[in-house]
Each structure stands twice: as structure tokens, then as C-alpha cells.
């Protein structure tokens, strides 16, 4: 249980894990805590936090419960962060693996392809993709995945390049294992730790990206996400600062927690580096 011990040594990572756990809990409990739609207009608009009991975070411009929005938004933000990261991994890992394993022309072609996507400014591409597919959870997830897979591909390729000539891989090759088996069973498991660290950071970036898109009005109109809440509160920031501060802090804490956890994972999974700190 070396891994957990090392992870626990990083106090920041523990704090991050606790915060993240709370956010996940909030997301999971949302349907039970606030069974009604978070869009329902339930009280006077612009109630300050605590002004009326039962609405401990107040109400928004239309009299919707901010706490309900926050809880349902946790679910949406985490889900968009997770799914888009999974999709990005699903694109980036195979491409990186193939490029690194086979090298030569395949590597060249795949890296050109990766470079191509890295040459178009990320955020601009995400905006264009969402605008073209029209804002919906699907298009947002896809757009975020499309702009965030290249670093995964590069990382995995690098790992494959350094591992593929190790003895145990050569041995597997001599035994006559297929390329597929070598890639999936021999090399891939050994590249996992840096990929996991990167993935935890990607979830954080995806949450930020989704909130930026929502801020520009490119969010899914049917889901209450934190980015949507900030975007909608922007015009009333002067009258009701809490409407933009509350979801803003929620995003900040979640992203912070994910980063702390990522660092902890990095320490725990790459012990050589951890000792350096």
C-alpha cells in the first residue's frame, strides 16, 4: 500500500480529495436534496443568501433557488469534465500508442495530424465547433474532447517510445505475441500513471472550458451548469454579486481540488520525482 501512503503524505492532496469528495457527494445527492427542477421559479427574485429561510444561498434573477442550481450544476460540471476527458483519452491514447509503437511513417502521419490540431488555437476551435453543432451537452463535450486530446497523444507516444525497447517488451515480441497484445497488455499498463495525472488535470481544464463557453452564451440551454450560472449572473453582478461569486467559488474549489489531487497522484505514482520535492 505504498501508493496510498505516499499520496497521504501530501497534505494538499488530502485536502483536495476531501473537497472533491464533497462535490461528488453534492452531485450525487442533488436529485434527493432538490427533487424539483432547478429551473423552477420558487421565490421572489434576487433574494440574498439567508434572507428567507429555506433558501440559504438566495435566489437568482428569476427567483430560482441558487442552492438547487449549485447542486444540479455540480452534477453537470463534473459529468461534462469527466466525459469529455474520457472521450479525449479515447482519441489521444490509441493515436499516441500507435504512433509511438510503430514509429516511422505511421508516427509521422499521426504526429502531423496531432500537430494540425495543435496549430488551431484551442479556445477558438472549441467556440467554432460548439457554434456549428449548436450548443448542447453533446456538442460541448465533443468540442472539449477535440481540443484537448493532442497533449494526451504526445504524452502516450513519448511513453511508448521509451518503453518499447525495454527487455520485457522485447521478450513478449520474441514469444510471438501480437502487436495488439503487446500494446494493450505489456506497454499500456506501464504508461498509465502519467496519463492518470494528466487526466485529473484535464477534468479541471474541461470544467473551466465549459464555464467559459457558457459565459459566451454557448452553453446547453436545458442544463443548469455552474458556467451557465455565472454567465446568467454577469449582467446583475453589480446588484447581486453573490450570484456570480457562489458558482465562481464552486468552480474554483473544484478545479483547485482536482489539481491538488493530480499533484498528489503525481507524487504517489512517480516516487523518484516526489522525493525531489
Amino acid at each position: 500500500m505504498n501508493f496510498f501512503k505516499r499520496f497521504a503524505q501530501n497534505r494538499g492532496a488530502l485536502v483536495g480529495l476531501v473537497i472533491l469528495g464533497l462535490v461528488v457527494l453534492l452531485a450525487l445527492l442533488a436529485p434527493f436534496l432538490y427533487p424539483d427542477s432547478p429551473w423552477r421559479m420558487v421565490q421572489r427574485p434576487f433574494l440574498a443568501p439567508g434572507e428567507v429561510s429555506g433558501f440559504w444561498l438566495g435566489t437568482d434573477v428569476m427567483g430560482r433557488d441558487v442552492a438547487a442550481g449549485l447542486a444540479h450544476g455540480a452534477w453537470v460540471s463534473l459529468l461534462i469534465g469527466l466525459i469529455s476527458t474520457v472521450v479525449a483519452l479515447a482519441i489521444g491514447v490509441p493515436l499516441g500508442a500507435l504512433a509511438g509503437y510503430f514509429g516511422g511513417k505511421i508516427d509521422d502521419a499521426l504526429m502531423r495530424f496531432t500537430e494540425f490540431f495543435q496549430t488551431i488555437p484551442n479556445f477558438a476551435l472549441a467556440i467554432v465547433l460548439v457554434a456549428i453543432m449548436e450548443p448542447s451537452t453533446f456538442s460541448i463535450v465533443l468540442a472539449i474532447a477535440i481540443v484537448s486530446w493532442p497533449p494526451v497523444a504526445r504524452l502516450v507516444r513519448g511513453e511508448f517510445l521509451s518503453i518499447k525497447h525495454r527487455e520485457y517488451v522485447e521478450a513478449a515480441r520474441l514469444v510471438g505475441q501480437t502487436h495488439r497484445d503487446i500494446i494493450i497488455k505489456q506497454i499500456l499498463p506501464n504508461t498509465l500513471s502519467p496519463v492518470i495525472v494528466l487526466a485529473s488535470l484535464m477534468v479541471a481544464t474541461a470544467i473551466l472550458l465549459e464555464s467559459s463557453l457558457s459565459f459566451l452564451g454557448l452553453g446547453d440551454p436545458d442544463t443548469m451548469s455552474w458556467g451557465y450560472m455565472i454567465g446568467a449572473a454577469r449582467t446583475v453582478m453589480r446588484q447581486a454579486w453573490w450570484l456570480s461569486v457562489i458558482p465562481g467559488v464552486a468552480i474554483l474549489l473544484t478545479v483547485l481540488a482536482l489539481n491538488l489531487v493530480g499533484e498528489g497522484l503525481d507524487d504517489a505514482l512517480n516516487p523518484q520525482l516526489a522525493r525531489a520535492r
Binding site: 473551466l208 467559459s212 459565459f215 456570480s244 468552480i251 474554483l252 478545479v255 483547485l256 489539481n259
Partner: peptide, 17 residues
């Protein structure tokens, strides 16, 4: 870490304010 985790547009709005 704090700056890293804060949405850019949000900082911008706060700075103007």
C-alpha cells in the same frame, strides 16, 4: 494554484469592478 483555478473572465469582471 488559486489563479490557475479561477475562471479568466471572472477575474476580468472583478478587476473592472
Amino acid at each position: 494554484l488559486l489563479f490557475y483555478a479561477t475562471p479568466l473572465y471572472w477575474v476580468a469582471m472583478m478587476a473592472v469592478l
